[in-house]
């Protein structure tokens, strides 16, 4: 099977579990891209930043934890960037979030787009 020679930016704007299955679907696709040899950055903005919250336990909902998927993403070499303003607006502190991410400003987003071949929005 041919390697995927592409850099893909996945932009997640919806919160975890409560809005369709966008968060789960985004990270599933991100992991497939990495597994196939592509490069992938997960850019979290708006409610998408909630996927970084520590201690998510959706067992009562009968759903798999997105943190498990994110752990695979990081292990496969994926990069996570989050909109600093979106994190701040939601009252989230650094201690609330898993560590493997970088907070960025909106001024950085154009550069992020230019670095990647495609941007997919979830």
């Amino acid at each position: 099977m041919a390697s995927l020679n592409k850099k893909v930016l996945i932009s997640l704007v919806h919160g975890t579990y409560g809005h369709q299955d966008d968060g789960f679907g985004a990270v599933q696709l991100a992991n497939a891209i990495l597994a196939r040899g592509g490069e992938c950055t997960l850019f979290l903005r708006s409610d998408g930043v909630y996927i970084l919250v520590k201690g998510q336990d959706p067992n009562d909902l009968g759903l798999p934890s997105n943190l498990d998927e994110l752990a695979d993403f990081i292990e496969l070499g994926g990069v996570i960037k989050a909109d600093r303003a979106a994190v701040k607006e939601r009252g989230l502190l650094a201690t609330d979030l898993i560590e493997d991410h970088e907070l960025i400003e909106w001024d950085d987003v154009l550069g992020l787009l230019e670095e990647h071949d495609f941007c997919l929005t979830f």
Partner: peptide, 9 residues
């Protein structure tokens, strides 16, 4: 999903 990745490629 690899079907989609083939499309992306």
């Amino acid at each position: 999903l690899y079907g989609f990745l083939d499309m992306l490629a």
